[in-house]
Structure formats: structure tokens, C-alpha cells
Design a protein around this nucleic acid. Structure first.
Lengths: 82, 82, 82, 82
DNA sequence: CCGGGAGGAGAGGTCC
DNA sequence: GGACCTCTCCTCCCGG
């Protein structure tokens, strides 16, 4: 936390390294996000409803047991409102 | 809009293809997210404050975008509020 | 488009007025959002599942016709994946 | 899990009450959102750029929060990147 | 009609 | 482990 060309230079280098590694990974992650957007665009251009597609993909990601539990509770709550 | 075996088999295949492409890309994206988490963990183990690191990375991301073409108008509007 | 004291003082006043009206409305809006959060907290403290509650409230907000259309398309898409 | 008149009638009533309170609050909140939209429309009709106005309002909202206690640490970390 | 931006909801991480 | 809070994603609305 102090002086000339030396003190904590290792910590500085370490920090820079960590930050740069993260930024590089985020760059790659963003590229994939863009790719995904692109595929949705293609699908849309082919007449598919992307909102429904998203729902399907979300559904397939879920644990069936969790889904069942959620559904039964949902039905119970809804039943309160006729 | 379709073909031979069964109803709309082409559309079905197209939908399957789109969904699977997206799911694969999301798998890769998640792997990168996990990598990023891992780097933050390393940094934390080395004594860095990850909350501040996140702020730094966010800041560095924002700067380039902030050179907007409406900056002058923005400044004008802001000037109204002293 | 202007008047007496200084350049565009009318426009300035108008802008200030618009901005302040919006900011006041946003303050009120935020207060309501906090109230809503508070009710969810109470409900949770009484043993209700807030995630399911949100789903119920969202469901009740929807137009039945839209919901049916979405559901049938959703089922169709899902059927592609066995 | 409950008492006398009918199955869980108390829990039912409680749930209904919570949901209705939330829905009423959301109705009020939406009314305010509409009011805000209305003010933006007026401003636009008076020749102001609503996009810039939004930027101004956002900025004014951020400033107070940005005086964070970790500013010094943030500056230290940023200094690494000259 | 399409893409981009703003607002809201949900999920995950962090601190207590 | 529970609550807050940040971040990401989804949806809707405005502008082009």
C-alpha cells in the first residue's frame, strides 16, 4: 500500500490478472448470448413463436419433481378464487 | 409447408433443431459463468474484495458506451438543475 | 419560444416542471412497490409460498383467450420432444 | 393444520386477503405508471427529447447512492489500470 | 413491423 | 440458514 516501483506490485499484478481473466470470459459469454439471440431470430423468421420456445426451453430445464410440487400448490391457491 | 412422413415433420425437425442449438449454446454459456465464478473465488482466496472487483469491472464496461452522441443535449438538460 | 429573464427561461422552467412531476410520481410509485413487498413478506410469515402467489396473481391478470392460445401452442411445441 | 368451519377456511381467507391487497396496490401502481407516461407525452409534445429526459432522471437518481463507503477501495483497485 | 430500451420478476451470491 | 441485494432474463412499450 505504499511506495515506488515495487511495493505490492505482486498484489497489483494479481489483481490485474484476475480482472482480465474475468473480462475475457465475459467477452466469450457475451458472444454466446449473441449467438443465442441469433438462433431465436432464425426461428422467428421460420414462423416459430419465440415466446413459446422460451417457455419450452425453460420447462425442459426444470426438475420434474419441483414442477409437480409447484403445480399442485398453484392449483390449490387458484382454487381459493373459484 | 410440409412433406412426407407424418404431419409437418419438417417443421417438427426444424423446431427440434432450433431448440437443441439453443440448449447447447446455453450449456456453453453456463460453463463460462461457472468459470467466472471460479475466478472470483480465487481472487477472494487471495484477499481481494470481490464486491469491489465487480464494481471495477462494471465501471470499465460502462465507460466506452458513455461517449454517446446525445451527451451535449444531456448536459444542457442537466444544467437546468444547477 | 422564449421570454424575459435570460435565454429560454420558459423552456427551462417547463423542463424542470416536467422532470419534477415525474420524479414525484416515481417516488409515489416506489412507495407502492415497497408496500407490495411488505404484503408478500407478511404472507410469507404466514406460511404462504410467495413464488406461487406471484404466479397466481400473474395468471389472474391474463386474458383467458390469450392464455388458451399460448397453452395450445406450448403443448404443440412440447409434443415434438416426446 | 387448522380448525373449525370447513377445511382451512382461515388459511383460505388469509390467502384471499393477501392476494387482493396486492392486486389493489398493483392497480394503484399501474395508475401512477400511466401518469408518468402521460407526463412524458406532454413533454414530448412540448419539444423535449424524452430519451434524454429519462437519462437525466436516471442520473439524478444514481448520484446519492454513488457516495459509497467503499469508494476509496474502489479507487485503489481502479488505479491499477491507470 | 422491427429492434432497442425500460421496467419487473426470478435466481444466485453475499453478508449477518 | 435466512434476508437483503445484485444481476440476469423476460416482457412490454416506444421510436425508427
Amino acid at each position: 500500500m505504499t511506495a515506488t516501483a515495487g511495493h505490492n506490485s505482486l498484489a497489483k499484478d494479481a489483481l490485474k490478472s484476475f480482472v482480465e481473466r474475468i473480462e475475457n470470459l465475459e467477452t466469450e459469454k457475451k458472444a454466446l448470448a449473441d449467438d443465442i439471440k441469433e438462433v431465436y431470430s432464425e426461428a422467428k423468421a421460420n414462423g416459430f413463436d419465440t415466446k413459446v420456445m422460451r417457455a419450452v426451453i425453460r420447462e425442459r430445464k426444470k426438475d420434474p419433481a419441483d414442477r409437480d410440487e409447484f403445480d399442485s400448490l398453484f392449483d390449490l391457491y387458484m382454487s381459493v378464487f373459484g
